[in-house]
Simulated assay, not measured.
Amino acid sequence: MGVLGAGGALPTGWMRTGTPIPTVNLGVVGFGQAGGLPYVDLQIAGTPDTTGTIALLLAGSNAVFATSGQVWAGSVFLSLVAGSLSGISGGQIGFRPARGYATPGSTTADAASVSITPSGVVERYSHVVTLAAETTAFVAPQLLFVVTQGVPVDVTLRISAPQLEQASAASGVQIARAGGFDVTEPDQRNLWYLQPDGVDDWMQLTTAFSPPGRYTLAAALGGVVDPVFGNTTSATNALRFRTLTEGGGQLRHDIAAGRSLVVTDTRFAQRNVVVSRVSSTSSGEVWLNGDVTTAWRTGDLSPISGDALFRFGNSFGTGRFYGGALISEAVSTLDRLHLQKFMTRLAGVSL
């Protein structure tokens, strides 16, 4: 705790940006947990010697990969715990749910913000933005405080559970990972994942997965991963297991051209656990977060081998991959339940 620059520090991944105003201090004056959510109490105090904007990023400007045209939702819990907003221009603060960056520290034209007025009551604020700038490569949520020269400011805000997700609306709070825009509950394990880096990469299996007529594919995912499992050489006539944005969220378990299992559900655009079980060339089932789905089949489901696990970059996946399983048999109901439970630990979701 303490004033930034004088022994104090922001939570890991947060950073102060914008034009420095030396006469206004930012300091962490408290932290803890309330209502099941971890929080940080941030004080802004001083008399500005110039009019300007104090900007606080709630994730590093190169922490989250993004591209033009994507829709992102940002959310944060805020409340006023001391002082007032009278020294902040208009008595409001700005919230940019997802500010675009071309390179770390270099913003794009996606700078729209909404004005919010925190009170003594904890409230979750959320907003959605479509990234329009073609140069967008990263995205981060941001709070903005406009101060006026000579007007004193003294306010302490409680900031809790900031969250950024590629979605058309903010989902339930996902307490998953220390650092960045997610947070971790006390005494709970961190989660680790792979996510795109903008380059066409993949995890290549030493020996291609060549299942018999019966097999099971499972994955713990966050958002669009295309494909979770596939082939290093061609998307045509290759076994692909992927989530997409179509219909608000879709899983396609493609065997080859004209042969697939398809499920449409908005939860595929969020963090989830999915299990696909093929029992025969004419029978396949898909479970999403433990719920059996309505899957429709096109053609027969005779498998084709694949050797790439989580291919990402360029036009491929933009989400997160927490872990997966490739099993050369159609697992029993009991084994499927065990598999789902294991996957929930990887993805940090509850069934």
Rank of each mutant, 00 (worst) to 15 (best):
156 T>A: 06
156 T>L: 07
156 T>P: 04
156 T>N: 02
158 R>C: 05
159 I>Q: 02
159 I>D: 03
159 I>A: 01
159 I>V: 15
160 S>I: 11
163 Q>R: 08
163 Q>V: 09
163 Q>C: 09
164 L>C: 01
164 L>Y: 02
164 L>P: 03
164 L>N: 02
164 L>R: 03
165 E>F: 11
165 E>N: 08
166 Q>M: 15
167 A>C: 10
167 A>L: 14
168 S>P: 14
168 S>M: 12
168 S>C: 07
168 S>L: 15
169 A>R: 13
170 A>N: 07
170 A>V: 11
170 A>R: 02
171 S>I: 10
172 G>K: 05
173 V>A: 11
173 V>P: 00
174 Q>F: 12
175 I>S: 12
175 I>Y: 01
175 I>M: 12
175 I>W: 00
176 A>T: 10
176 A>S: 11
176 A>W: 07
176 A>P: 00
176 A>Q: 01
176 A>V: 07
177 R>E: 07
177 R>A: 09
179 G>P: 03
179 G>E: 07
179 G>R: 03
179 G>S: 06
179 G>L: 01
180 G>N: 11
181 F>C: 04
181 F>N: 05
181 F>Q: 07
183 V>M: 05
183 V>W: 03
183 V>I: 08
184 T>K: 08
184 T>Q: 13
184 T>F: 00
185 E>S: 07
185 E>I: 07
186 P>N: 05
186 P>E: 02
187 D>F: 14
188 Q>A: 12
188 Q>H: 05
188 Q>L: 08
189 R>A: 14
189 R>T: 07
190 N>M: 02
191 L>R: 10
191 L>C: 01
192 W>F: 15
192 W>G: 05
192 W>A: 06
192 W>K: 00
192 W>V: 13
193 Y>V: 00
193 Y>E: 08
195 Q>C: 09
195 Q>P: 00
196 P>F: 03
197 D>A: 14
197 D>I: 15
197 D>L: 12
197 D>E: 13
197 D>K: 06
197 D>P: 00
199 V>T: 09
199 V>R: 12
200 D>H: 14
200 D>W: 10
200 D>K: 12
200 D>F: 07
200 D>R: 15
201 D>R: 10
202 W>D: 06
202 W>Y: 11
203 M>T: 09
203 M>H: 06
203 M>C: 04
204 Q>N: 08
206 T>R: 11
207 T>A: 11
207 T>E: 11
207 T>H: 02
207 T>G: 01
207 T>R: 06
207 T>W: 00
207 T>V: 14
208 A>R: 09
208 A>S: 14
209 F>Y: 14
209 F>G: 03
210 S>A: 15
211 P>S: 09
211 P>E: 12
212 P>L: 05
212 P>R: 13
212 P>D: 14
212 P>F: 08
212 P>H: 10
212 P>A: 14
213 G>E: 12
214 R>N: 08
215 Y>W: 13
215 Y>Q: 02
215 Y>L: 10
216 T>C: 10
216 T>N: 09
217 L>Y: 06
217 L>M: 15
218 A>I: 08
218 A>F: 02
219 A>Q: 06
219 A>F: 15
219 A>I: 10
220 A>D: 01
220 A>S: 15
221 L>P: 01
222 G>N: 05
222 G>T: 06
223 G>H: 12
225 V>E: 04
226 D>Y: 11
226 D>V: 00
227 P>E: 11
227 P>A: 13
228 V>N: 01
228 V>Y: 02
229 F>C: 09
229 F>S: 01
229 F>V: 10
230 G>V: 13
230 G>F: 13
